[in-house]
């Protein structure tokens, strides 16, 4: 089972407590009535579906209840980092830093994991 870090609970929690909620950073149209059919189609259905790094939403459904964002590799299933909803998409440097410190943390001690 995957362990996912909830940025609100500030803890690694088991995957079963979470639900997946699709791609992140898709802004709702500011003026919905002005949208053409094609623009609506793109907003509702067209997703990047990348092979590799993916910015996605998760919800800590059976925990704090909050939606947040995660950076996950769709090939390895490895989470690089998670961050609170509403914060901007992290840059390459920030992601590299976060995943390096997470790797160091988990190597240092598994028993420090706070539920």
């Amino acid at each position: 089972m995957l362990l996912i870090r909830c940025p609100y609970c500030e803890a690694e929690r088991p995957e079963v407590e979470f639900t997946y909620a699709g791609e992140a950073h898709i802004a709702r149209p500011a003026d919905p009535s002005a949208l053409s059919d094609d623009e609506w189609r793109d907003f509702l259905f067209i997703r990047t579906n990348p092979r590799g790094r993916h910015f996605e939403r998760w919800r800590h459904m059976h925990g704090c209840g909050r939606f947040f964002n995660a950076v996950r590799d769709t090939v390895t299933d490895k989470f690089a980092m998670t961050y609170k909803a509403g914060t901007p998409r992290p840059g390459d440097e920030e992601i590299a830093l976060a995943s390096a410190s997470a790797a160091a943390d988990s190597a240092a001690s598994v028993k420090d994991a706070r539920p």
Partner: peptide, 22 residues
Amino acid sequence: IAFDVEAMAVGTGCRTLFDKAQ
């Protein structure tokens, strides 16, 4: 319960799943 119950600090609590029940 899928998380490390032993590591849970005394005097804390959380919502979680017990089998399939919240």
